[in-house]
Design a protein around this nucleic acid. Structure first.
Lengths: 151, 151
DNA sequence: TTGAATGCAAAGTTTTTGCAAAAGC
DNA sequence: GCTTTTGCAAAAACTTTGCATTCAA
């Protein structure tokens, strides 16, 4: 749940490895975009990241932001989540994190949670249907304690 | 899991009630679209429904298909699901069905399942975070037994 | 008759792509 | 120097909207 600002080395290392393997390059824009993405709260849309970069006096094209996020997705470093209003956000895919989301329909707050037992039951369901599971997405929608009062 | 072709009266009744309450009307196109939607397998996109209607010698505009599906959504009769490739599909929201989805990444087959215990644990998680839950979405991605062989 | 529904085409959104110029290695 | 990346604008994909016409009650 906590933001860990240090300890993103693994991210850059995996990225370097991916770029090398795929014969791709670093670039000023690419690095700026990724730095800002890592600094921002997770669950960021391409548009939000783009605006943020403009505030910081960098001005990559929106296309470049998309291309960079897609690169990270291909590298398996971020995950793209489609929310039900059709918008999508990106989040860092830490190799050891298995969290799901509680989403407030009023204020759009996103809370992460982990539940071992739910994970275990999912495995069971998959096994029962002879599925080989690669990932899952569990989203609980509702109203958070703050917003519930104002309804 | 079985398709129940009879017993859609509740759907039409709720629809009638909603239309009356909102001072909206029935129409030939609207009814054709809804009939075809109910006859098709669930998890149908607007575009698929539109093509199907053309095959059946009805030719509502695509906009009308969208408008009708949105009407059903407003009426609380269907649910729109965003799949991870950015496309969205609609499915009947039976008042007593709490099912989730196993989705094959190879053949795009969708299998529904129900798991009481997962539901119960979700409630617990929500309670722990003081969330008032309204709905949830659980999707398990992987490869089905058929496709796993071909990998 | 009066408001709602339709069809069409135009406009919106979000994301991707083509291409010439610039940058990385 | 050769290949990748960038920026821009154009295109794509999906969905909504505006408006004149048709339809339902």
């Amino acid at each position: 749940m906590e933001k860990v600002l240090a300890g993103q080395e693994w991210f850059w290392e995996k990225l370097n490895h991916y770029l090398a393997k795929s014969q791709l390059k670093h670039s000023k824009q690419r690095n700026f975009i990724i730095e800002e993405f890592l600094a921002m709260d997770s669950h960021v849309s391409a548009e939000e990241l783009y605006s943020q970069l403009k505030n910081r006096d960098h001005n990559p094209g929106l296309a470049t932001v998309y291309r960079t996020l897609n690169l990270l997705k291909d590298a398996g470093l971020v995950d793209q989540k489609q929310f039900s209003d059709g918008k999508s956000v990106f989040e860092v895919m830490a190799p050891d994190s298995h969290h799901d989301h509680l989403i407030c329909l009023s204020c759009h707050k996103v809370i992460e949670f982990e539940n071992e037992e739910i994970e275990r039951l999912q495995e069971l369901v998959a096994k029962k249907h002879s599925f080989k599971l690669t990932k899952h997405s569990l989203e609980l929608f509702g109203h958070c304690s703050d917003c519930v009062k104002t309804l």
